[in-house]
Amino acid sequence: MIDRVITSGTFSLDGGTWDVDNNIWLVGDAREVVVIDAAHDAAAIAERVGGRTVKAIVCTHAHNDHINAAGELAELTGAPIRLHPADQVLWEQHYGDAVSYEPMEDGEKIAVGGIALQVLHTPGHAPGAVCLYAPELSVLFSGDTLFKGGPGATGRSYSSFDTIIESIRERLLGLPPETVVHTGHGDSTSIGAEAPHLEEWITRGH
C-alpha cells in the first residue's frame, strides 16, 4: 500500500528561498506505515496516517523542505526519525540540536507491513542522500536524487554533479527497468524511462 500526500512550503539554502511542492510517501499496510520525507505540514501527514502506527519517519536527505515537519510528526506519532549521518550539517541548519534522529546506514532494511525498504546511499544532491528500494513492490523512492527527466539539482552547497551521476549509475541504473520511481517532487517515472536520459547526462557532463 503506497499513499502520497502533497504539501507546499519553501526550500531555503545558500541565502535563497523558493516555493516548492513536496511528495510525502506513506508505505505499509492497514496497521503500520513508514513516512518518507515529512515536509511542511505534519497535521496533513498525520491525517493521512490515520490510526496506523508510524514505524519510522525516513528522510531521504536533510534539505529543510524534506525535514521541516519531521520533528512535529515525531512528537505526534512517537516514531523515530531516520537520516543518513552524512547530512548532519544540513540537519543542524534547520534543527540545531533541538531534534535528534537515529542514524541510517547504506544497505539497511527497514521493515514495514510485510515488505522491506532497502536503504541505498546515493550522495550528490546532498552528502547523505538516500533512495529507498522495495523490490517486492518494484518501487524506488528516490527523494531528490532522480526525477522524471534527469538527476536532482547540484548547484548549491554540499552538492556535486559528478557524485550524483556516479550514484545514479552505480546504484540505480542496475535496478530492473520496470521499477517505478516515486520522486520527492513532481511526477513518478521508471528506471527504464530514465536510463536513456541519464546516459545523455553522463556523456555531456554538466
Rank of each mutant, 00 (worst) to 15 (best):
M1T: 06
T10L: 03
F11A: 00
S12N: 07
S12A: 13
T17M: 05
W18T: 05
V20C: 09
N22D: 06
W25F: 11
W25V: 11
L26M: 10
G28T: 14
G28E: 06
D29S: 05
A30H: 13
R31H: 14
R31T: 14
D37E: 08
A38D: 00
A39W: 00
H40R: 05
D41A: 02
D41K: 00
D41S: 01
A42M: 06
A46S: 10
G50S: 08
G51S: 03
G51L: 03
R52D: 07
V54R: 00
V54W: 00
V58F: 01
C59P: 01
T60E: 02
H61Q: 12
H61V: 04
H61D: 13
H63G: 08
D65G: 01
N68C: 15
G71W: 11
G71L: 14
E72K: 12
L73N: 03
L73C: 11
L76F: 06
T77Q: 08
I81H: 00
L83Q: 03
L83F: 03
A86I: 02
A86Q: 03
Q88V: 07
V89C: 04
L90H: 02
W91M: 11
W91E: 02
Q93C: 02
H94L: 05
H94Y: 08
V99H: 06
S100E: 12
Y101W: 06
E102R: 12
E102A: 15
P103K: 07
P103R: 12
G107C: 05
I110V: 11
A111W: 04
V112G: 01
H121G: 06
P123D: 08
P123M: 05
P123Q: 06
H125T: 11
A126M: 09
A126K: 01
G128P: 09
A129M: 08
V130M: 10
L132P: 07
A134T: 09
E136G: 15
E136V: 15
E136F: 04
S138T: 12
L140C: 11
G143L: 13
D144C: 12
T145V: 13
K148M: 11
G149E: 06
A153V: 12
A153S: 15
G155T: 13
S157V: 09
Y158E: 07
S159L: 08
D162Y: 07
I164C: 11
E166P: 03
S167I: 02
R171S: 05
L172H: 08
G174C: 15
P176K: 13
P177D: 15
T179Q: 11
V180N: 01
V180S: 07
V181E: 11
H182C: 10
G184Q: 05
G186W: 03
G186Y: 05
T189C: 13
T189D: 10
S190L: 09
I191M: 13
G192T: 12
P196I: 11
P196S: 05
E199Q: 13
W201F: 15
I202W: 07
I202M: 07
R204E: 06
H206T: 14
